[in-house]
């Protein structure tokens, strides 16, 4: 059986990566609304994905409001594609 990427395999992180794969970049609020995670929970999942170099996080401001932008890296995109391929192979 092929090895499944444990970083992406976790459902919340898988959803985050799937959402980001359909976008160039998204902010924290969008991810929070779409995943229904709490701020703390989402932050910890984002941190894990960032440690694995699957996403990059940019902290900036929109006027006076802090804005956290999240992007999928090339590694993250490749890992997501590979995960999908692996899961397709397992389910076949």
């Amino acid at each position: 059986m092929s090895e499944v990427d444990r970083v992406i395999h976790e459902p919340a992180r898988l959803l985050i990566v799937a959402l980001l794969s359909g976008a160039k970049e998204a902010d924290f609020l969008f991810l929070q609304r779409e995943t229904n995670l709490t701020k703390g929970n989402l932050s910890s999942h984002l941190m894990k994905l960032e440690e694995a170099n699957y996403i990059e996080i940019e902290k900036t401001f929109r006027g006076k409001i802090p804005l956290t932008l999240v992007r999928l890296t090339e590694d993250g995109r490749a890992a997501f594609q590979s995960y999908r391929k692996t899961m397709n192979g397992l389910l076949r």
């Binding site: 359909g22 976008a23 160039k24 970049e25 998204a26 902010d27 924290f28 609020l29 969008f30 991810l31 929070q32 609304r33 779409e34 929109r62 804005l67 932008l69």
Partner: peptide
């Protein structure tokens, strides 16, 4: 839109 539902930019 973005202040309510969050910002997202589509990939090319």
């Amino acid at each position: 839109t973005f202040p309510r539902g969050g910002y997202v930019a589509l990939a090319n």
